[in-house]
Design a protein around this nucleic acid. Sequence first.
RNA 1: GGAGGGGUGGCAGAGUGGUCUAAUGCACUGGUCUUGAAAACCAGAGUACUGCAAGGUACCGAGGGUUCGAAUCCCUCCCCCUCCGCCA
Length: 422
Amino acid sequence: MLGVELIRSNPNAVIESLSRRGSSSETIELIHQVIDQDQTRREALTLQQTRQQSLNTESRSIAELMRDGKKEKAQMVIERQKTLKSEIRDLTQKIAAAEDSLTQLLLSIPNMVHPSVPDGRTESENVVVYSHGEQPTLEFEPLPHWEIAKLHSLIDFERGAKVAGAGFPFYIGAGAQLHRALIHFFIDSALPEYTEIRPPLFVNSDSAKGTGQLPDKEGQMYLVDDGFYPIPTAEVPLTNYYRDEILSESDLPIKLCAHSPCWRREAGSYGAHVRGLNRLHQFDKVEIVQLTHPNHSYEVLDQMRKHSEDLLQALELPYRCLLMCAGELGFNQTKQYDLEVWSAGQKRWLEVSSISNFTDYQARRMNIRFRPEQGGKPQLLHTLNGSALALPRVVAALLENNQNEDGSYELPSILTPYLHSY
RNA sequence: GGAGGGGUGGCAGAGUGGUCUAAUGCACUGGUCUUGAAAACCAGAGUACUGCAAGGUACCGAGGGUUCGAAUCCCUCCCCCUCCGCCA
């Protein structure tokens, strides 16, 4: 969430930034409500603290009177305190109410937009900032990946649907090994820089709140009994790792990576675009996360983007990098790149990575700070994450782009060390 | 799952209703002393909010309650430890 101080001190800058997202007048109205509630809260708080001070002083004097045996005098003070106490109670309630609505308001206000983000409302206004590789020119009508997978018994969607449901495929034999090879390749590529983490695959609601899945994207997560959420991305446990902690400036940047399955409800999806591996309820992903000093987060964003691009280049997949326009930007992000690979069989682009800077928006929710080397107050750090990469669509693109007319396919040589049994 | 014991500052640890405005030790920072260091001695130091400021308020796992007054008593929840049971 945004800081109240920012909204208080510079409401116009916030409003301007939010209008770039195409935020409605209602969102703008929220800003004014924040300012109102903030003022109510501070006025009540100042008053309450003064009253509390009187009460504390008097209570101490009661202790003295009691010690000196002046019981009657003490009793008088006790009587007098009743008004003070009820006044404090009322003020405390008023403060709590203002704080509650302040939190609610702040949770429903999206992050600021970085100046380098292009204007725009729709997908078509995202800007292609980079393209790499040639879309393969095939002399025959290429198959979609689900056909190729069926031909070679790599993936069994039908039995997945029987055993779990739609969107829960089985990978079989060489298909399972390809999947595992990609995980190993992705993790190995991250290892020189990033610390490998094996995270919990369920998180509690505090963690889901911390990274912004709650309340904004509640419908996207599964919820199991006892209040656990199966993670929709490893971003959640990784970024929450340092929740409510104060780090040393010298610890930064912190770089974490993890492979994990991801579970998403994807309610309401249908049609050809969700066929095969295009959209699943369970899929695997290697995620990279960085916690950085606020001064460096945008450089780091570009480094992380390059990391993911290098993977696609090593896999020899044609791809493009999109800079998301203001209207397409996620709720929590200030700037976001998407990487899309070309899928020759479906003749369209598939998103395989999203790399984002959240600045201090998540850090404020999670209360993750660092102590400046020069001394001074702890300061919020910046959080970033990126997919490096999401598995299923990479599998789809590998199969579709490298197919031959006879239905066979080849895999890029970078994977050779990871493939041996089939 | 059963029984018991716990949760206090960076760490250890005292405190069981009123100078707790949280002792003490270790670690940390500054100073004195010293050629330099160590030791010793002196001083300082948490987080958040609030206030122009001086300062104030809150925080002893979390949330409620009792009381003029709660780290301390009561209730609910969370977490940790020990033993037993179960288990890959």
